[in-house]
C-alpha cells in the first residue's frame, strides 16, 4: 500500500504546472469564445428587453381595450349616442397611446418573432375596435381598416406593426362573445330588432369563420373559440326565439319607444 501511494500522488504534483500552461493557452489561443459570446449576450439581452417592453405595452392595451368594451356595454335604449361616442373616444385613446407603444416597438421580423408576447393584446384591441364599429355602423370593421389606422401612428418606411390575419380572426372570434352579451342586454331592454340584427351578424361571422378557421397556423386556439362562438350564437338565437314566441302577440308594438316595455317574462306583458 505504502509503495503504491507515491504512484498515486505523483501525478498530483504534476498537475499544477499543467494547469498553469492550460490557463495560459486558454488566454492566448481560444479567446474567440468569450468574445463571440459577448455578442450573443448582447443579442439575447436586447431581445429580452424588447420582449419585456412589448409585454408591458401589451398589458396596457389589453386593460384599456377591456375598458372600451365595458363602456359599450353601458349602452341602453336612450343613451346610445353618448355611450358610443365615449367608447369611440376611449378607443382612440387606446390607439394613440398604448397601441402606439407597441407599434413603435415592433418592426419587420419582430411581428412574428414576438407574436406570442403581443397577440392577446392585439386580439383584445381588435375585439374592442370591431365592437365599436358594429354598434356604430352595423358593419364588421375590416382588418385593412384597422391596419390603416395603425399606419398613421408611425413612419410607414419603418414597417410599423400591422396586425396579422390570425390575430384579427382570433379577435373577431372573441367579438361574438361580447355581441352575445350585448344582444341579451338589448333584449331585456326591449330592443328586439337590435338583438336580431346582432344575431344575424354573429351567425354570418360564424359561418364565414368555419371556412377560414381550419386553415389557420395554429388552429387549436381557434378551434376552442369556434366552439364558444357556436354557444354564443345559440344563446342569442334562443333568446330571440323565446322573445319571438312569447312576444308574438305584441308584434305591432315591436318598435314602440315605450321605455317600460320589456319582452322578458310574462309579468312584463301583464303591465
Amino acid at each position: 500500500m505504502a509503495a503504491k501511494l507515491p504512484h498515486v500522488y505523483q501525478p498530483v504534483a504534476e498537475i499544477s504546472p499543467q494547469i498553469q500552461s492550460k490557463k495560459q493557452r486558454k488566454m492566448s489561443t481560444v479567446s474567440a469564445m468569450p468574445e463571440a459570446f459577448e455578442k450573443y449576450t448582447d443579442y439575447l439581452n436586447q431581445l429580452n428587453e424588447k420582449r419585456e417592453r412589448v409585454v408591458k405595452a401589451s398589458r396596457d392595451v389589453t386593460m384599456n381595450s377591456k375598458k372600451v368594451i365595458f363602456q359599450v356595454h353601458r349602452i341602453s335604449k336612450h343613451n346610445k349616442d353618448e355611450v358610443l361616442e365615449k367608447a369611440a373616444k376611449d378607443l382612440e385613446a387606446v390607439t394613440d397611446e398604448y397601441m402606439l407603444r407597441l407599434v413603435r416597438e415592433l418592426h419587420g421580423s419582430d411581428f412574428w418573432k414576438l407574436r406570442r408576447a403581443y397577440s392577446p393584446a392585439v386580439q383584445e384591441y381588435v375585439e374592442a375596435a370591431t365592437l365599436c364599429e358594429f354598434c356604430k355602423t352595423g358593419n364588421l370593421l375590416k382588418l385593412a381598416e384597422i391596419n390603416r389606422s395603425l399606419l398613421r401612428l408611425s413612419d410607414p418606411s419603418l414597417e410599423p406593426l400591422q396586425i396579422n390575419i390570425l390575430d384579427y380572426l382570433l379577435g373577431v372570434g372573441d367579438l361574438t362573445g361580447e355581441l352575445m352579451r350585448l344582444a341579451i342586454g338589448r333584449i331585456s331592454d326591449g330592443e328586439l330588432a337590435y338583438a336580431e340584427r346582432i344575431c344575424t351578424f354573429v351567425r354570418d361571422i360564424y359561418r364565414k369563420l368555419t371556412l377560414v378557421a381550419p386553415l389557420m397556423d395554429d388552429n387549436s386556439e381557434m378551434k376552442k373559440k369556434m366552439e364558444t362562438m357556436l354557444q354564443s350564437v345559440m344563446k342569442i338565437e334562443n333568446a330571440c326565439f323565446s322573445v319571438h314566441v312569447r312576444g308574438s302577440e305584441f308584434i305591432p308594438i315591436l318598435g314602440s319607444s315605450d321605455p317600460n316595455f320589456s319582452f322578458l317574462g310574462v309579468s312584463d306583458m301583464d303591465l
Binding site: K136, A193, Y194
Partner: peptide, 11 residues
C-alpha cells in the same frame, strides 16, 4: 317593423 331609433348610426 323596427323603429328608426332601434338601430342608430351616430355620425
Amino acid at each position: 317593423l323596427s323603429s328608426p331609433t332601434a338601430f342608430q348610426i351616430p355620425g
